[in-house]
Design a protein around this nucleic acid. Sequence first.
DNA 1: ATAAAACTTGACGGATTCGTACAGTTGGAT
DNA 2: ATCCAACTGTACGAATCCGTCAAGTTTTAT
Lengths: 160, 160
Amino acid sequence: MKMSAAEEYGLRCLLQVAQHKGPEPIGIAEIAEAEGLSPEYAAKLLRLLRKGELVNSTRGAKGGYHLARPAHEISVWSAILVLDGPLIEDSHCKVHTGRLPACVHSTACSLRGLLTYISINLENVLKNLTLADLFQSEDAVRAQLEAAPEGEDQGAGGEP
Amino acid sequence: MKMSAAEEYGLRCLLQVAQHKGPEPIGIAEIAEAEGLSPEYAAKLLRLLRKGELVNSTRGAKGGYHLARPAHEISVWSAILVLDGPLIEDSHCKVHTGRLPACVHSTACSLRGLLTYISINLENVLKNLTLADLFQSEDAVRAQLEAAPEGEDQGAGGEP
DNA sequence: ATAAAACTTGACGGATTCGTACAGTTGGAT
DNA sequence: ATCCAACTGTACGAATCCGTCAAGTTTTAT
């Protein structure tokens, strides 16, 4: 139950894009410098974000990245999904023939229920937290999260 | 944000120990067979659980493992901590000289606030879920978790 | 057209995790 | 006392993830 490097640094890069002011897109060099990453690594992460349709890229001179949607419409949850995939795969308990009612493992797979719930819980919490919210300070983020524990919509969109 | 193999299989092995009936401890061979793991791998995971003081071991003939405490006093959270360590390390944002108010990263480390909150949220949810609760079916586990969303004590102990 | 800036892609060592293998130690049963 | 079941610990190859590198492609500016 750890956050992967791709998630952490990918999220940081995404925040750099979101934070960038001005009509011109932000370049990889600038993002990499701001986060202390190599330009190549930043590029790799940005590519992930682009494939996840969280950012768009402009090529050529004066090119760079910009958000695909406004910051307050991009949820932290969607970024995590793009950067690291889902917490629990559909194939977690592989069904052999297609007619297996319980998990192949002996403990009747109460673990699957646990994992599913953890995933749903996390999704509910992070779906309503947007990039715009993360601009605030550390304390403000915690306050924000605690104010809307679950299933509440506070003006953000999140997933399309 | 994935569950590691050690967490998953370690939890399964722990459940096998908890589920075992009778005064005699359960052996590695039996646990491994039940979960479809190699005896050596099961032994490795059980050793972790032993070091975390979640199980005790009896050596010699007729030896094996038994829970260190009753199943309803061992929380899923404590097992996850033992098997995979904390979600966020204290050293996550390393402080260089000891007087740095903000994270060394440029985005003022709203990420740390995010991570801290995710960790606390998960802890609150899983602290009150015990091994005994996991014996139930998948649906029952979800119902149980949804019934006690946060910060409620329902008779379990968890950490010593 | 040409050059320069910027992104794209695949491939590559190094580190960590996964699962296995094997030698060593402990302790109950005969 | 001896044997054997059972746990303990280290060491190892395989797979995956991390981060880097170099070659390639696209686009703007001159």
